[in-house]
Design a protein around this nucleic acid. Structure first.
Lengths: 70, 70
DNA sequence: TTCGAGTAGGGTAATTGGGGGA
DNA sequence: TGTGTCCCAATTACCCTACTCG
């Protein structure tokens, strides 16, 4: 699987608990942020949420706008 | 768009670990999705699974329908 | 053929989603 | 208004051994 070319280029994703740890909040709170549209959420086929690491980092720096441009 | 009856489908396939990386889940989870029929799985002669890149990308974008047209 | 890395399988523990209330 | 906590059901992660891929 060691392909020299970069196939399947994608962006790193974070789990709810990882985001919760970064913000020092409860994972439920992160879920509410996603529900409220304050955070972009990518769902797995099982219904669980994954979050964009780039967006989370921007939010951690105090950015309240939407820096989503991938 | 130049899409006749494709008999010898040469669509790019992804390994379980590649799909798992895209969704930020465990390779075993991707296997469960294939078992549950949520993901189209192509088996090798040895029993290993391969997944359609186009379907995986559609699922990542939030598409829950079935873009499989073969 | 040999070999390293990945995968399938089964089982069990941990995480997550959803609703509701403090 | 926003967050933490309780419940239950579902999903996911990690453990192992044996087999397959390239």
């Amino acid at each position: 699987m060691t392909n020299p070319r970069q196939r399947t280029e994608s962006e790193p994703l974070l789990t709810p608990s990882e985001v919760a740890t970064l913000f020092r909040v409860d994972p439920k709170t992160v879920t509410r942020w996603a529900k409220a549209g304050k955070l972009t959420s990518i769902r797995t086929l099982g219904g669980h949420r994954r979050y964009r690491e780039s967006e989370v980092r921007s939010l951690l720096e105090g950015n309240t706008n939407t820096p989503v441009e991938v």
